[in-house]
């Protein structure tokens, strides 16, 4: 098993955000984590990374990682692309990518040039401070940067939020590319269409718990779940 989350709880101050989250992911699987705003999707990935203190069990490849410092979790092969993108604005695009590399003596399978080829907009600004990039370009950069560290599982939080349709399509293509490379993906999304197209399995969250688990087809047929937990 790649990732096993068991009875995960998390708090923001006094409010109880995660209320016993349970799920597991196989090697090479693409899983979408769906749900309305505020149900705890972002908190789930944040607490896996230790950004929000987790209570409960999180196992990565069988090893307990709950409460570890984030750099040690990352070193074990877990990549995280946060919702607010967090590019390093004063560093150049190229430097941002280079900082994604964990060990310069052991080059990984992703290369800086490969991402610059894939995204001509990034290539044009390779030596400009990343702060000048547009929202979509920042998103491409931040996903690419995490890939530079050769994760076995990458958690991507709301990659398409606030982006134009054309960019959303490009990001969808990038995510498919990642899946093709054999990297497991945990995708937090709001846009149903993307999640349904790409993922093998979907999880729906409500009130800090997983309330539905199944294939995209099963979710498509389950109108009750969609009405209660997804549609506005």
């Amino acid at each position: 098993m790649m990732l096993e989350v068991n009875d995960l709880h998390a708090y923001y101050g006094k409010s109880h955000i995660l209320n016993g989250v349970n799920f597991a992911m196989q090697e090479g699987e693409v899983v979408a984590l769906l749900g309305r705003n505020g149900v705890g999707r972002s908190t789930t990935v944040k607490s896996i990374m230790g950004e929000v203190p987790p209570q409960g069990s999180i196992r990565f490849r069988g090893e307990e990682i709950a409460g570890m410092p984030n750099h040690r979790i990352a070193r074990r092969g877990l990549g995280y692309v946060p919702e607010d993108r967090d590019i390093f604005p004063t560093l150049t695009v190229r430097q941002n990518l280079e900082l994604g590399i964990k060990n310069t003596r052991k080059p990984g399978k992703w290369k800086v040039e490969q991402f610059l080829d894939m995204f001509p907009n990034l290539a044009r600004r390779a030596d400009a401070p990343a702060g000048v990039l547009s929202g979509g370009e920042k998103q491409m950069l931040t996903i690419s940067r995490t890939l530079m560290g050769d994760p076995e599982l990458i958690m991507i939080d709301e990659p398409t939020e606030g982006l134009a349709p054309l960019i959303v399509k490009q990001i969808g293509e990038l995510i498919s590319e990642i899946a093709k490379a054999g990297v497991s993906i945990l995708l937090v999304e709001q846009k149903l269409s993307i999640a349904m197209d790409i993922s093998h399995r979907v999880l729906v969250m409500g009130h800090g718990q997983i309330v539905f688990e199944g294939t995209p087809e099963e979710l498509r047929e389950d109108e009750a779940t969609r009405k209660e937990w997804l549609e506005v």
Binding site: E51, H71, D86, L91, L99
Partner: peptide, 17 residues
């Protein structure tokens, strides 16, 4: 320089902040 603005993210990339 990256940690000056985004210390947490530097850690997420696997660097010991």
């Amino acid at each position: 320089r990256a940690a000056l603005t985004h210390g947490e993210m530097v850690g997420h990339l696997g660097h010991n902040v």
